[in-house]
Design a protein around this nucleic acid. Structure first.
Lengths: 206, 206
DNA sequence: TTCATAAATCAACATAATGTTCATTATTTG
DNA sequence: CAAATAATGAACATTATGTTGATTTATGAA
């Protein structure tokens, strides 16, 4: 946002922003158009075009702000020592920072997550998820302090698989399917960090 | 697809399907409308409405077919024994099946992956990815037969994180941010399978 | 406080897509 | 072949878009 000198400009943009958020919340992205947005904001339809090219331009500007802020979050490197170091029950610091930020901006992110992904994508993920649940060794998931909720494990699993397959597609499916499957199998079995270090499990502890 | 008796019906639907695919390929999902679709298919605009309610109905029908087929793929259970069993360099069988299927239907899935996710989602993932690359212990990624390409590791990492955070949002952000960060940290460090079994690494080998 | 400046309003417009209709033509199947 | 039904073509009301120009209103600098 370049200029924001005039009070009227600030007010109008606030009205537009708020109208956009609440409109997406109730109707979804597809339900947003300039007509209803300006109606909800209580401004003239023409006024909208004084500020933004169209709805997509508006979204871009909103997203720009969020990305900018996230990009400014400090990076504290937590390199390989965490692998070989003993068991410390503390999260990586920069992960905490990210999640805290998203928690603060939860209104935006809730909308984003609700809108992100196609209908088919949701069905596909649900399918993958349900298959994985069948395989999860349920009895071992003891409810002790150290355990991670199994819904989170499944979310991690399925999303990771999804991402690997997506990457395979986005790189033009160069690798043969069997190799992709092997990559996935290794990552699941050993964990990404182990795999990155290319060690076998018995080498994990120095 | 219920009825497909008449030759004309079959022909028309094929034309529509093909027109849809190629139209999405060149213009993207947003660029598809009934006008241009029927123009490309070489049929009357009214004819489209004889078969589908609207564009979304058409997409639903196409997706239904794919999901149905994937749902019929055989599930071969590969349970916990894989954890304790020795190092076998063979992928899990049902993973192979899935990826083979997607490879066969690559035209559909290429479109899906290209269209899936919002613009913001792509930016967010790119941000996460770039941060993770910084942390990857590059020198250790030796180019031996066992290694997994680091782009795949990053894809796995970042997508998994994304999925966990998404799950957190979709369950109403009940857990405090710090605990989500801890869950992620554990999953990254130990791998999902270890975490599911709730063991510490030294217990990994029986 | 005044007043030039800029923002917002209002009404109107052309354009383009939607979904529906109905009479007509063409094709298929038994 | 003939009855059935699919596809066509043209028209229609509806709705959203993005733009324009004249007018009113609010702002902030002097």
């Amino acid at each position: 946002m370049e200029k924001a000198a005039d009070l009227r400009v600030i007010r109008t943009r606030k009205l537009i922003d708020e109208a956009f958020l609440s409109l997406v919340e109730e109707k979804g992205l597809a339900g947003v158009n300039v007509r209803s947005l300006t109606a909800k904001a209580g401004i003239n339809r023409g006024t909208f075009y004084l500020h933004y090219q169209d709805i997509y331009d508006l979204m871009d500007k909103i997203e720009d702000q969020i990305i900018e802020e996230m990009d400014r979050l400090p990076v504290r490197s937590e390199p390989e020592q965490l692998l070989t170091s003993g068991y410390v029950e503390e999260p990586f610091p920069s992960i905490v920072e990210f999640i805290r930020f998203m928690n603060e901006q939860h209104r935006f992110f809730a909308i984003f997550f609700a809108q992100d992904g196609t209908a088919f994508g949701k069905r596909l993920k649900a399918l993958i998820r349900s298959r994985m649940y069948e395989k999860l060794p349920r009895q071992v998931l003891s409810p002790d302090a150290l355990s991670v909720p199994d819904e989170y494990i499944v979310a991690y699993f399925s999303s990771a698989h999804f991402g690997v397959i997506r990457h395979w597609f986005e790189t033009g499916r160069i690798l043969p399917p069997e190799q992709v499957a092997l990559i996935l199998t290794r990552l699941v079995r050993d964990g990404p960090l182990m795999t990155a270090f290319n060690r076998k499990p018995e080498q994990q502890l120095k």
